[in-house]
Design a protein around this nucleic acid. Structure first.
Lengths: 141, 141
DNA sequence: TGACAAATGCAAATGATTTGCATATATTAT
DNA sequence: ATAATATATGCAAATCATTTGCATTTGTCA
């Protein structure tokens, strides 16, 4: 667990438990969004007694602190990814196999456009693309 | 129910039931995305015996035919909106009161950008903005 | 009008997420 | 180091949206 994260947790009087260390490390080691169940499966080998509830509660806490972001894919459930890991980006999701590709370098100009044309004070946005990855396109032929 | 819709249903051997007529009319009369429960509540006054299951099954059917689009908001459940009602657009969702504003006229140039920079064959995308609407911004002061 | 496939209503199943509560653990002051 | 205490965890049960099985009803088409 990185120093910065550790400090942020301490600042917020959050106890550093084994469960939290493992959950955060897993999030740090991954480049793809993980669902609570995904994380659970990866924590268990290290902490066999861990409970799914603990995963949920910690994800909620981490989201509250602004460390992770919740992303929702089409017919799927929510997943989470660490904000610190990479700069703001979007996803391309394969409709067939569920493969997720990160899209970086997308111009954020349109975000400014939106902020201008709405009366809302925009703070965040989600942008997800759906289609078929290379492999699944082949299968469809 | 508009003629075009009626024809599309018949083409696909879908029976024209009272439930379907009412569900489709409700979707046609609304400019905001509606959840299955929303639709259920609006159908019931006209068809008191209608069951939520029927709403779900028909939404699935309409989505399959490409008549409606499923949109997922942040911590909320899925909602549906009729594609024919308006051209492609996006949403701004108030983090406080849940108010939804439609955003039209957003340049779609970035969609082309994406198609070029990924190996995916992009077919669709979701774009949602989150922030605070005029009223809720006032309340926060 | 009758035959038949498709749609509905109802009840129960499912699956993710949440909650209550007793126990365990990290933190803080002693 | 140790004790006191607030917080976190595990477990079981509750919740809530969504799905499924099946008997009954209803459109559609000959």
């Amino acid at each position: 667990m990185k120093r910065e994260v550790l400090e942020l947790l301490k600042e917020n009087k959050v106890k550093i438990t084994n469960e939290r260390e493992v959950i955060i490390e897993i999030l740090q080691q991954t480049t793809k969004p993980l669902s609570p169940a995904d994380i659970f499966l990866r924590v268990r080998p290290q902490l066999p007694k861990v409970n799914l509830t603990t995963i949920y509660r910690n994800l909620e806490m981490l989201e509250g602190l602004g460390l992770i972001k919740r992303v929702g894919f089409n017919k799927e459930y929510f997943s989470y990814e660490l904000l610190a890991n990479r700069p703001h980006h979007h996803h391309a999701i394969c409709k067939n196999c569920g493969k997720i590709e990160d899209l970086e370098n997308i111009s954020e100009k349109f975000v400014d456009q939106v902020s201008r044309q709405t009366s809302f004070k925009i703070e965040d946005h989600n942008l997800e693309f759906f289609g078929y990855c290379k492999n699944c396109r082949r299968e469809n032929l």
